[in-house]
Design a protein around this nucleic acid. Structure first.
Lengths: 349, 349
DNA sequence: TTGAAAGCGGTACCAG
DNA sequence: CTGGTACCGCTTTCAA
């Protein structure tokens, strides 16, 4: 009985039923259905047969028969980025607690790819789709994305956006503006007056919100950032490094502290300053945003705004699994953490 | 026509066929099958209908009809750990390039959980299962795990183990012993003679291999690590911190350099030394293993053994997708990187 | 080239 | 409590 190179194929419920000497209906009931209605003896025969044959129900077949799957889909920008991986940890934790399998896709910070991914994911018919995406305004793809998600939702799916408030779906946001606002005040209170700002292109929402909050905080205190000290760069460690390198090269010219819109960028910046012969925390203050794990491991420890990323993931799942109808929006709060990278800076007035 | 709160449900191929005025068979062929055999006009009518209705094929239904899925399953110990997330990045990249959807599960370093996960995953009938698992010897669960994977394979699935050589499946290993061996020699060449070793419980293979390699490297040079300087601790940052704290507390007593079996532990150790008033790189050398991103961002930059983690993930997928039959074993090589945490240590002889 | 129909692996209703 | 059977959404013969 040649089976081809693929082997005998997987054991099916029919095999189990035959082995146990019952009908597939009974086998199905014993293994999954409301086990109540099957005679104890038969039930154990079926379980024994299943164990003997090492049977696992075909989830796709169950999905099709039951009309719903037990999977949760997650879209992230980049798994290797600690920002996303912390969120992913929260999402998977909650999903597994709810008995859902997680399928994860990486959008690589491109809106087009994100759209394509969501199209594919929709075919999975997951219970929910959580998008912790590229957070980029792409006017063209935005509408398509929204349409795709809308179609998914109207077919009974749940959508939750993480850190993207501007689409009409459930949302878990991070208080980017508020956190940056508080950071600005804290830095000012610590004695800083002359600031530089390292940010991503304006199309990146997160960056924009953090900048806006920071500037608003300063403005309220009668402070500002000179245009020439606002550096646009990539949203990565390399981007932060490059921005700091450029700044150091042309001279700090009085700048006392740099706010980089993410920790990853801030850490890159610290490295560049050091390479340029400047000591972060002494010659130049550095602050970031996110409080990723390594923020406490760099020297000096990085001042930042803590975002409860894992909890954001958990919350997103909770929202998506609740049966609350209307688009809910949950904002998670942030906390300013002043550390050694921005020591007190006593000023004579 | 009440549809319930769930909405109208997803559009099916029947809907598309009706809309296009053709049979489902034709619609199926136009959308997926070998498009050759369908009249151009019909094909475009079908595509138009599909677009109009925003149709996405039900992947589960396709899977069941075709007898195979287009998913790849990945098991990791902890997404938030940079070691695993770097591997995951490689795996997802390769999977998406091959048109596969990735489902990811987190085993949380527990062999029992890992086993349970693989059981569930098997129900998904993925094309392959990649396990970058807890790397723990659990005698009891080991057999069960192996049996589960064996059943999966004999049903036509592909299994690839990452960094676990001891099961009879395709394997991508990291040269843990060799890397640690080279590190030992490099440290000795840099002038170090008195070593401490921070390691995980012996049940953790990776830790064991790295220790063995390190000790072998020393032995060849007539060196050794005193038992009292071998500290067993947790396989985490906190574990490294704790080990270093204990060591600093009872006095370095001549120890010149610590080898912690992972960067994450090494970074925790650095932090503890610093808290104890010791300057890493000056008062005590520190070396790790993995070369995670933050290894270059800590101060002093961490001496370590670089492991091409992303590439390990890519390789694992390549192996799993190849049609090579027998259990293949690919070993990825490692590179010693001496950085400022272990400066040259001139000795008078 | 096309449509009817037989599955794929389960679930669940409906009679016994 | 149990078995027969009609689906679930899609693919793929088989005839027409």
């Amino acid at each position: 009985m040649p089976d081809g190179a693929e082997g005998p194929g997987a054991v099916t419920l029919h095999d189990v039923a035959r082995e146990a000497g019952v009908s597939v209906a009974t086998a199905s009931r014993a293994l999954n259905g409301s086990a109540r209605n099957v005679r104890t003896e038969n039930a154990s025969r079926v379980r024994a047969a299943a164990a003997k044959l090492n049977y696992r129900p075909h989830l796709s077949a169950q999905a099709i028969a039951r009309g719903q799957t037990r999977t949760a889909a997650l879209v992230v920008g980049d798994v290797a980025d600690p920002y996303f991986s912390a969120i992913a940890a929260g999402v998977t934790e909650a999903a597994e607690a709810a008995g859902l399998i997680v399928t994860m896709a990486v959008a690589g910070r491109s809106p087009e790819r994100e759209l394509e991914i969501i199209r594919t994911l929709r075919g999975q018919r997951p219970r929910l789709i959580a998008v912790a995406g590229s957070r980029i305004d792409g006017a063209a793809t935005r509408a398509a994305l929204s349409g795709e998600l809308e179609a998914y939702r109207s077919a009974g799916g749940r959508v939750v956006m993480i850190s993207q408030r501007d689409l009409p779906f459930d949302t878990v946001t991070i208080d980017n503006a508020g956190g940056a606002y508080q950071l600005a005040r804290a830095l000012a209170a610590a004695g800083y007056r002359r600031f530089a700002l390292f940010r991503a292109p304006v199309t990146v929402r997160t960056s924009r919100d953090r900048c806006a909050g920071f500037l608003a905080g300063l403005r309220e205190l009668g402070l500002a950032v000179e245009d020439r000290f606002v550096v646009e760069t990539e949203f990565t460690r390399a981007g932060g490094y490059e921005a700091a390198r450029r700044l150091a090269e042309r001279g700090l010219d009085g700048v006392e502290v740099v706010f980089a819109v993410t920790d990853v960028m801030a850490i890159g910046a610290m490295s560049a300053f050091r390479d340029a012969g400047l000591v972060p925390g002494r010659d130049i203050g550095v602050a970031g945003f996110d409080d990723i794990d390594s923020a406490v491991d760099v020297t000096p420890a990085l001042t930042t705004v803590a975002v409860p990323l894992r909890e954001v993931g958990l919350t997103a799942m909770r929202v998506a699994l609740s049966d609350d109808p209307g688009p809910v929006s949950v904002q998670t709060s942030t906390t300013v953490l002043l550390r050694e990278s921005t020591p007190l800076r006593p000023r004579t007035r």
